[in-house]
Amino acid sequence: MRALIATDLDRTMIYSSAAASPAGRALGLHSGEPGSRPVCVEIYRDAPLSFMTPAAVDALTALAARTPVVPVTTRTREQFERIDLPGSPFEYAVVSNGGRILHHGEDDVAWRRALERRLAAESAPLEQLHADLLGRIDDSWVSSMRIADDLFAYLVVDGDRQPADFVTDWQAWCAPRGWSVSQQGRKIYAMPVGVTKSAAIAQVRRRLIDDGALDADAPILAAGDGRLDADLLVYADHAIRPCHGELDEAGWTTPGLAVTAHAGIAAGEEILGWFAGRLSDNTRSSKHSPVPDPALAEK
């Protein structure tokens, strides 16, 4: 059976040295037998940044050879392209949390233009959000504030010094203006509500079906660890999340959701095994008949 596999990357498929261990200890990159050492899949500023287990590298490579795999990430295109992800090149990738779809590495301009029209109608301008944010933060607990892809904003913070009510208070300002707030570790995101991973994956699914690369009743399998993945996990026919991360800390669930037994880098390996097991099933899609009608579909 073929399926569309849509997977988040950071802390789902790939892990920093600190995030790889459930206890937050840095990886022993040079310990153990060579075949068991974590494999570096991202270099940043001339230093290794992200890793997978050797078994996960093999598993993702094998999956990508069997069925469409779509990396789905909040990273910008530039940040995504730093990763040497096993199984690449991928026909499709979703970056900027759904703000961009890449097809054979090229930006889908029509998707982005349609998205910008929708955001103009539904969300306050990014400039207004930025101005409000500057009045709420200071460098005693915020190490950087960034605008990503001219689309959303995020902070890198010191969690120990972060005001306890910051996220709640800012969400109260953002929600009526068409924005959502999510904290994932040291990063706090403000995202327009119309920018979602599920909408972008619905569009990718539609195109794969139109191209004959996917049956109309092929299921969507998805994985993710943070609140910005929740809509994708709900949209999928079958979904899994690791037993760590923002969703786990919140006790988040949805009907049929699987949760890994392992945390840290071992969860990525477990998720890939779960995907492979689902491909052996004959379960067809029960949510997307015959083709989804994505709000932003545009040829």
Score class of each variant (00 low, 15 high):
Gly105His: 02
Ser123Gln: 04
Arg136Gly: 06
Asp160Lys: 04
Pro125Phe: 00
His130Arg: 10
Gln128Val: 15
Ser123Phe: 04
Arg113Gly: 05
Ala131Ser: 11
Ser140Trp: 01
Trp141Ala: 03
His130Pro: 05
Phe152Ala: 12
Leu133Gln: 03
Gly105Trp: 00
Ala148Gln: 11
Asp149Ile: 07
Leu155Phe: 02
Gln128Glu: 15
Ala148Asp: 08
Asp138Glu: 03
Ile147His: 11
Asp160Met: 03
Asp160Ala: 07
Ala153Asp: 13
Ala148Arg: 11
Val109Met: 14
Leu115Val: 08
Trp111Cys: 04
Val156Leu: 14
Trp141Met: 03
Leu155His: 01
Gln128Met: 14
Ser96Ile: 03
Leu126Glu: 07
Ser123Asn: 01
Asp158Thr: 07
Asp160Thr: 10
His103Thr: 14
Met145Lys: 12
His103Trp: 07
Leu102Phe: 01
His104Val: 06
His104Ile: 14
Phe152His: 06
Asp132Cys: 13
Glu127Ile: 08
Asp149Pro: 13
Arg117Asn: 13
Gln128Ile: 13
His104Glu: 10
Asp150Lys: 02
Glu106Gln: 10
Trp111Phe: 08
Arg117Trp: 12
Ser144Asp: 15
Arg118Glu: 14
Asp160Phe: 08
Pro125Gln: 01
Leu115Gln: 12
Asp108Val: 15
Leu151Arg: 09
Leu129Gln: 01
Leu133Trp: 00
Ser140Cys: 07
His104Thr: 15
Ile101Tyr: 10
Asp138Ser: 07
Leu126Asn: 06
Ser96Ala: 12
Ser96Trp: 00
Ala153Asn: 01
Ala124Asn: 05
Gln128His: 02
Arg146Tyr: 05
Ile101Met: 06
Leu129Gly: 06
Ser123Lys: 00
Asp138Arg: 05
Gly159Trp: 06
Ala153Lys: 03
Asp150Ile: 00
Ser123Arg: 00
Asp139Ser: 13
Asp150Val: 03
Glu122Pro: 05
Gly99Asn: 00
Asp160Leu: 11
Asp160Ile: 15
Tyr154Ala: 04
Ile137Cys: 15
Arg112His: 11
Ser144Cys: 08
Arg112Gln: 14
His103Arg: 15
Arg117Gln: 09
Gln128Ser: 10
Leu151Cys: 11
Leu102Gly: 09
Arg118Phe: 12
Glu116Asp: 14
Ser140Ala: 02
Ala120Arg: 15
Arg113Lys: 15
Arg136Ser: 07
Ala153Met: 14
Pro125Gly: 11
Asp158Ala: 04
Ala114Lys: 07
His103Gly: 15
Asp158Ser: 10
Asn97Tyr: 09
Leu151Ser: 09
Leu115Lys: 10
Gly159Thr: 11
Leu115Asn: 08
Glu127Arg: 06
Gly99Arg: 00
Gly98Trp: 01
Val109Lys: 13
His104Gly: 15
Ala148Leu: 11
Gly105Arg: 00
Arg136Pro: 02
Arg136Asn: 02
Glu116Asn: 13
Phe152Asn: 12
Asp160Trp: 09
Asp108Tyr: 07
Leu134Gly: 11
Arg100Glu: 14
Ser96Glu: 08
Gly99Ala: 07
Val157Leu: 03
Leu126Gly: 00
Val156Ala: 08
Ala124Lys: 00
Gly159Ala: 09
Leu155Ala: 03
Ile101Lys: 06
Ala121Lys: 04
Asp149Val: 02
Asn97Lys: 09
Asp108Phe: 04
Pro125Met: 01
Val156Ser: 06
Val109Phe: 05
Glu122Trp: 01
Arg113His: 12
Arg100Met: 06
Leu155Trp: 01
Asp132Gln: 15
Val109Glu: 13
Ala131Lys: 05
Asn97Gln: 12
Asn97Ile: 04
Ile147Ser: 13
